[in-house]
Design a protein around this nucleic acid. Sequence first.
RNA 1: GGAGAAAUGGCAGAGUGGUCGAAUGCGGCAGUCUUGAAAACUGUUGAGGGUCACACCUCCGGGGGUUCGAAUCCCUCUUUCUCCGCCA
Length: 422
Amino acid sequence: MLQVQFIRDNKEEVIKQLQVRNVAASIIEEVISLDEERRALQAQLDNTLAESNKLSKEIGGYFKSGDVEKANELKAQTGTLKETSKTLSEQLNEKSDALTNLLYKIPNIPHPSVPAGNSEDDNEEVLKEGEVPKLAGDALPHWELAKKYDIIDFDLGAKITGAGFPVYKGKGARLQRALIAYFLDKNTAAGYTEYQVPHLVNEASGYGTGQLPDKEGQMYHIGADDLYLIPTAEVPVTNIFRDEIVSENDLPICITGYTPCFRREAGSYGAHVRGLNRLHQFDKVEIVRVEHPDNSYKALDGMVAHIQGILRELKLPYRILRLCGGDLGFTSALTFDFEVYSTAQERWLEISSVSNFETYQANRLKLRFKDENGKSVLAHTLNGSSLALPRVLAGILENYQTPEGIKIPEVLVPYTGFDMIS
RNA sequence: GGAGAAAUGGCAGAGUGGUCGAAUGCGGCAGUCUUGAAAACUGUUGAGGGUCACACCUCCGGGGGUUCGAAUCCCUCUUUCUCCGCCA
């Protein structure tokens, strides 16, 4: 969430910049007035407590010196102070909660380079690269290919669990494993440390990265234990740093991790969710960075370049989009989406999303570092997929299909142990 | 799952219901000494709110309670450790 202090100090600017995301100015006004009320109550409470602390000390003194009468006299005075402080702290809690809840509803301030816009149609294409292969007229979409070569079984997954939980078989399963290993190797070679993290998280972690409270319906919830299945590794990985103060020398912190991801995707249907296009469970390798604020945009560029490198090696046609205000994720200040061209479906598939959250997550997480003056400063957090497996797989199947079978991208052959699915 | 013990500052580890935000050691930082470093010595060193700056307030795993006053007493939750059971 945004920092109240920042909103207070930059009110007009905040209002203006949030208009790109259609946030009403009245909400900001409300934050400011709630904060004022909160601080006024805090001051009153503090004074009341100070008074009663003082009295208690005096009473202690009298008891020590044996002046019980005087002590009891003072004791009588504490009653009303106690009442007052109780009422005040109740009011204060109410205000603080109201303020926090309101702040939870305000999205991150977009970076100045974020274009205005309402939907994905307004995203700005910043780069397009790679050759779209010319396929034979009878080129198949990946779900047909999956069936033809018996490498992914959607019906079987539906039988065991439900729609959106595919079963990978034989070379299909091996290709998945190869991709995970390849991605992790690329990331660790680029300086990211590999982590294995839990796939279920508690409520506090959900709040830490901003999935809660507003995206509650997107996560699977285990009621009996009050845990959530992770929708992305971002949640457990970023929460490693919840309530942490790291040393400035430790920055940047670069972590990569592979996890399955679980998303309810309620309300999704139709042709766009066919095959691997949208799943309830899928695999993803994620990169997460904790950065010094001065360096975070440079780091974002570095992450974009890193993912470009992977896509070039895979020889997949892709493009990079700068998300517009309307399509930008709630917690992000600037996001680049990567899309791979699906030749058989003749459409672009999102395979990565790389974002700088600036201090938005760090403020919720209380993730800070000590600067050179010994002051605690909120760090910047960034993350990106490198990469999401299903759509990369779809892209490979569709773009690498030949009459003889599906060729395996060269860089993956050492990982798969075969160069053709036929 | 059953029985017991514990949770204190970056770490280790004291703490009697009343100047305890907390002894002491280690670590960190600054200084003295040194050509430099080490050692030694001196000082400093938790977080948040609040203020122009002070004052002041809150925090000793989380939440609640007793009390004029709680790190210290009570309840509850969580976590860790030991023993038993089960188990990849």
